[in-house]
Amino acid sequence: MHEFWLKFAGHRFGLAGLVFIVALIVLAVIYPFIVPYDPAAISNDIMMGPSARHWLGTDDLGRDVFAGMCQGIQVSLTVGFAAALASSVLGILIGSVAGFAGGRTDLGLMRFSEMFQVMPSFILAAVIVAIAGPGLARVVAVIAILAWPQVARVIRGEVLRIRQLEFVDAVRCLGYREGAILFHEVIPNALPPVLAVGTLIVGQAILLEASLSFLGLSSADLISWGRMLNNGQRFLFDAWWLSFFPGAAIFLTVLAFNLVGDAVGAVLNPKGEQK
């Protein structure tokens, strides 16, 4: 573990990404003490540009943009982490079973996952949410269903590799059952690469949630970055700050997760990419 951090620290961009994410989490917790506005509070300061009073301006209802963005961190990170976790669990289960069982089970499950990868996943998610109704849990579930094949592919490869290592045979000689071997011996050893893919999925999930909210597919009471952009779209000609800042927040956050994910991948698998 110590060695992992040492190597990770060597990737400057990955480290910068991690620092950014930690700073976001801190900001999400302490912002009520910094910003004197309630993100949902309507005021008379309507459509004000960035100023000393309202750092990033206000919207059409006089709500403070910076306070809203701080509140939005919560939604983005919750959706991101929850979706990554859910898709990882799903992917680990399906991928490890496919890799461990091999043969037809493997072929069938992998074909199934390929189908998910070919599908226009965002449109599918958007239609499901549009018809079934918004709600964070539903959004998380949809993203998880769309993202699991990425995890499944990685874990299957790892399981295939580990399955043929000697220690698995050694454990088998001790009389353990196949299921026990898979869950106690093989999966724990196959997990590290999931960390890299999982981190990338957090970024994708944040982007996907923002896109759905931008299309208006989120609860109107919930302040999120995508929702703010949706609102900003109406005032593009009058109030650039309503679009610029929330979008920049999405961009930087997703970029941070992508940088961390790439760095984790490079640390765990140095031969894959040169940098």
Partner: peptide
């Protein structure tokens, strides 16, 4: 590499909004 990373991270609709603000408005 940077261009590719940018393309994967940027919310495409936001980029469109920026273009409108810059090039049209």
């Amino acid at each position: 590499t940077a261009l590719s990373l940018f393309g994967y991270s940027v919310p495409i609709f936001w980029l469109g909004q920026l273009f409108i603000i810059l090039f049209s408005i």
